[in-house]
Amino acid sequence: MMSASTEAHEKGSPDFVVAHHFDSADTQFDAGRLGIWLFLVTEVLFFGGLFCAFFIYRNWYFDSFVEAHHHLDKQMGALNTVFLITSSLTMALAVRAAQRTKRSETVNMLFVTFLLAGCFLVVKYFEYTHKIHDGLLPGAMFSAQGFATQHAGVFFAIYFVMTGIHGLHVVIGMGLILWILIRAHRGDFSSRYYAPVEGVGLYWHLVDLIWIYLFPLLYLVG
């Protein structure tokens, strides 16, 4: 659908082709952006199911949730929050650089974003291994001792499923960032054509946005 010339330079604006069924570059650009926004809607509702389950079970098994959430590490969660909002900033700056046809700035910012995403996953890895070691696992696998309430397993089910799916989105996001990083390095993008950078950017912000809710609900208030 979209292809770009490989002979792009920081100053010159690389050539690109408007797909045959669009009447102008603007229409094509808008269509892409609307498509991404519609996709984000589906992501919100996808995670929404889990938020719904969270609220309902929190309502029912309130004591279990309060007790269980003390077993999550607030500091690690806060650290991850900082990683993600910083990566959101660098992602936004990468889009801005691409809009101004700054090739190396785009590449650098994407690279930082990629690293921060990696940091997020490393922290997550330590959290997970710690939980698994303590037997703080979902449902039937829950084996931790010394809980006063019955339903901590439900809390950890929601914790693992939500953070797990979110983590999967981070991994997918890293793949996408890598893809546009390579394309940016190749010089595909310019002020005339940066739709993929912006699309991946929007996706990445949504991943951040979901974490903005996950963090307080799971780690802070339980």
Partner: peptide, 27 residues
């Protein structure tokens, strides 16, 4: 869609895309 049909539209000669660049301080 703009009233600018071009039969085998390749290289855009329609209105080109001009990005809206947000100032750095806002970020």
């Amino acid at each position: 869609a703009h009233a600018d049909p071009h039969d085998h539209g390749h290289h855009s000669h329609g209105p080109d895309h001009v990005p809206h660049v947000t100032p750095l301080p806002i970020y």
